[in-house]
Amino acid sequence: MIPIENFLVLSGILFSIGIYGVLARRNAVLIIMSVELMLQAVSINFIAFAVYLHPEQFTGLIFAIFVITIAAAEVGLALGIILRIFRNKGTANVDEVDMLKW
């Protein structure tokens, strides 16, 4: 069988790649995609903990379902916001939208 550490390391790698994407990319859509990767990593973690450590409660599975649900809502809203920004500012690059400062 596969030990739990394998899944945890995989989720860590996935999450780190997501972090890199969020920090390095400047296009808002690409950042959203990186955030999705991070959410996937979190889901893997939840499910792994549920089926390995606490299969009698499997709260992690339930959480993964909610993560997917909320992620769907979040993507819908985020893309709506990106569209609006694009229409108002003519760009979808987050570093060009910097009105909120001194």
Partner: peptide, 17 residues
């Protein structure tokens, strides 16, 4: 300190991480 407030989202995200 105000120059820390760049208004650019990636900078803030980097600070969070």
């Amino acid at each position: 300190m105000k120059f820390l407030e760049t208004g650019k989202l990636p900078n803030y995200a980097l600070a969070i991480v």
